[in-house]
Simulated scan of single mutants.
Amino acid sequence: MGYEAIVLRRAARRLEDRRKERAAAQARREAEIYARLPRVAEIDRELKKTVFQIIAASLREGRDPTPSIQVIKDRNLSLQAERTRLLLDNGYGADALDGQPVCPHCNDTGWVGARMCTCLKQLCAQEQIRELSKLLDLGEQSFETFSMDYYSDQPWPGEALSPRENMEFIFDMCSNYARKFGRFKVRNLFLSGPPGLGKTFLSACIARSVSEKGFSVVYDTAVNIFARFEEQKFARDRQDVEEARDETKRYLGCDLLILDDLGSELTTPFVQSALYTLVNARLMANQQTVISSNLSMEQVRQRYTPQIASRLEGEYRVLPFYGEDIRLQRKKDL
């Protein structure tokens, strides 16, 4: 489990900016207090000197430094008490000059030992959602805002469940998949059905929820993904090749890949090979994938190789969407 390098860099940069802003604010507060209360400035200068006095006393030869150190400590405590009294009497907090970090757990470093602190994880999650939003609309899309209103409770031809009953099952499956990501019995999902039935919306809900839990999530369309694989193999410009290689590493290495609109790409022998590599590599690495497609599983068998179809049927939970196109329903309501 981990974030992509670009996400971690952006989050770390924000943490550093926040640390600089806090330091600048602390410097302004200190200047204000010192200008208003010159005695506090004098006390702080004297307190800094006591550190060197203690060190000098402890290094002095030929005598026990303990009495000298105790005198200095007593003087230090007296100065601190005077400083606190001056701050409180003039409307400041006792810790107004102490520069408390925003996060007391890591002192705004982002790390507690070798473990990433919660504050940096939160920034990483925000940056990852921002990255996902470049291709996937994550505005108000969440499981909490999903509506069943556009799914009929009337029987649907050829199906045992009504569109609403079917969608209630799909919604429960997707929400549990996201909520229990990595622990849920189902590892991979194949969202199948005509356009306008909520596949992309639920993909966005899964992406948001899993990302917020600290997992790396990559979303992209089938057309873009296979174009990147093709660039990596055939591009002549070195920079284009390296960029394509970085992208394909993201697809292969992330905790969750959401591949949208499978079947919209031109199905060449190269694309067949790239899809097999992608699906098989992620299965072998025990990494999870969500695929959405307008194709039924029967159409998948007709369009792709038997090896691809076998892995999708055997290793993915197929969730068939059906009902009336939500976009068309909304258009009628206008």
Score class of each variant (00 low, 15 high):
residue 69 I to C: 00
residue 70 Q to P: 11
residue 70 Q to M: 13
residue 71 V to C: 14
residue 71 V to L: 12
residue 72 I to S: 07
residue 73 K to D: 07
residue 73 K to Q: 11
residue 75 R to S: 06
residue 75 R to V: 02
residue 79 L to M: 02
residue 80 Q to F: 01
residue 80 Q to I: 03
residue 82 E to Y: 00
residue 83 R to Q: 02
residue 86 L to Q: 05
residue 86 L to Y: 03
residue 86 L to E: 04
residue 87 L to C: 08
residue 88 L to K: 14
residue 92 Y to I: 10
residue 92 Y to H: 09
residue 93 G to F: 03
residue 94 A to T: 13
residue 99 G to F: 02
residue 99 G to D: 02
residue 102 V to L: 12
residue 103 C to K: 03
residue 106 C to Y: 00
residue 106 C to G: 03
residue 108 D to H: 00
residue 111 W to K: 03
residue 111 W to L: 03
residue 111 W to F: 02
residue 116 M to K: 09
residue 117 C to G: 08
residue 117 C to I: 04
residue 117 C to F: 07
residue 117 C to L: 10
residue 118 T to C: 15
residue 118 T to E: 15
residue 120 L to F: 09
residue 121 K to S: 14
residue 121 K to D: 13
residue 122 Q to R: 13
residue 122 Q to Y: 10
residue 123 L to N: 07
residue 124 C to I: 07
residue 126 Q to E: 14
residue 128 Q to T: 11
residue 134 K to H: 13
residue 134 K to C: 15
residue 136 L to D: 09
residue 136 L to N: 12
residue 137 D to N: 15
residue 139 G to P: 05
residue 139 G to K: 09
residue 140 E to K: 12
residue 140 E to T: 11
residue 143 F to I: 00
residue 144 E to N: 05
residue 146 F to N: 01
residue 149 D to A: 01
residue 153 D to H: 05
residue 153 D to N: 07
residue 154 Q to V: 13
residue 154 Q to Y: 08
residue 154 Q to I: 14
residue 154 Q to K: 14
residue 155 P to Q: 05
residue 156 W to L: 06
residue 158 G to K: 01
residue 159 E to I: 09
residue 160 A to N: 12
residue 160 A to M: 12
residue 160 A to I: 11
residue 162 S to W: 00
residue 164 R to S: 01
residue 165 E to I: 05
residue 165 E to K: 04
residue 167 M to N: 05
residue 168 E to P: 11
